[in-house]
Design a protein around this nucleic acid. Sequence first.
DNA 1: TACAATTGTGTATTTAGTACACAATTGTAA
DNA 2: TTACAATTGTGTACTAAATACACAATTGTA
Lengths: 253, 253
Amino acid sequence: MLTKEELIEFCKEARESYLDHISIDCVVFGFHEGQMKVLLLKNKDEEKWYLPGGFVLKPEPIEMAANRILKERTGLDEIFLQQFHVFGDPDRSKVHNDMYADMLPPEENWFSNRFLTIGYYALVDFFEVTPQPDRFSEVCAWRDMEDMPELQLDHGLIFKSALDTLRVQLNYQPIGYNLMPKEFTMPELQKLYETILDKKLDRRNFQRRILGFGILNRAEQPRKGGAHKAPYLYSFDLEGYKHALTEGFKGGW
Amino acid sequence: MLTKEELIEFCKEARESYLDHISIDCVVFGFHEGQMKVLLLKNKDEEKWYLPGGFVLKPEPIEMAANRILKERTGLDEIFLQQFHVFGDPDRSKVHNDMYADMLPPEENWFSNRFLTIGYYALVDFFEVTPQPDRFSEVCAWRDMEDMPELQLDHGLIFKSALDTLRVQLNYQPIGYNLMPKEFTMPELQKLYETILDKKLDRRNFQRRILGFGILNRAEQPRKGGAHKAPYLYSFDLEGYKHALTEGFKGGW
DNA sequence: TACAATTGTGTATTTAGTACACAATTGTAA
DNA sequence: TTACAATTGTGTACTAAATACACAATTGTA
């Protein structure tokens, strides 16, 4: 939460630097301990969480803006990022507007503007991320997808839309390279798919299909030390993976 | 092309009415005589064509803006419209900016602003459309997709991107209801698919597959009067069609 | 050393996709 | 009137992909 002075300072700075009416919101997916995670922010004295987001600098390509915003929140560069939808309902920022409405009159308040927000989703390696709050929040943290808190504004809708998009993408693009560590076992990868889809898959059929895509390499040695039978380790074959990313899996018509 | 006075008038009006930095561009697909058509606009004294587009009114949802813009260009209401991408390169409007740069200094010229454009594609019944030029053009006409003229700005990219999206959509959504007349024959529908995909399909397999979707009704009587064997007439089963639109064809995982 | 948990692997069945050929209808030209 | 070209309707065999399902091997623990 900004103080009035900070708000005034920010509005001045925003008007100079950023494009009016445009924001970016990102749904950042991670995967940890068999759970899908989403990176969220929160104000100490508020209940609702919100998505990492920001604005577009006047001379900045929007892709670059999304990358910059996520670098600030995660510490990561070169994130897998995909634009998926623009949310442009004039009512969508009503609540946000109200939030600072008592501090500044609308004509001085940058947040009183109408904003269209461009939705991006990101897939990142959970362990590589160092969550960093932004200047409006005190908390930036991974939240469990099974246990999503209530979100501000239309961020619930944006999240749902991102998840739907991810589920569709799963059908004709490889997913996993950005979410899994370098080496992983087949059951671990399967768990990722099951978690995204919220659906059990057959172990044997999953393995056959995913190997059929030709995007995995199996290490010589299985993972040792754990309980039970030692599973083989796999890693993504970057060449095959990138080929599959551009070509897609299915022929269709 | 606007005169200087018209440009000044328009800039004043635009600043009052429209959101800054945002535009909408539409790729309108039609189908006629076995050819895919795209609705384009042109200035009399210019070579390059451009996509029907416009701006978003300050209190207007973006979907509604896209509909309004297309109603002005086609006369049609309730068009099948789908947002597919935002084009946000800061250089994308360079050429446009230059176009009016000799008339007005940048600070007065609405077109000198940076614009992000939201791309929509539309599928419409060719016969229902009455092409209407906008205030910047003298020509609004269907152009053959086989014989696309050069387009202004990044409109070539936007068009290509829309076509790619349409081709992907074809794999998991029914297409045709918005492009075909009420009744049509199987070969006519096949021609639509072949034209979109730019690829020959097997008659028998096409029929089996498309009928398998359960989105078509066959009329009792075949079409009479033409040369050759009288083909059956089909129409879309609206219920099945809408179900397929929301559910999609393929299970995937 | 038996057991529970987990992993690796194979096969039969069903479904979807592909390839391909012949018979029927209709107008036109001989 | 009749052969012909063009087009439509229909079915079957083959292949590939998806699904359903079961048993053997490994490892730590009781």
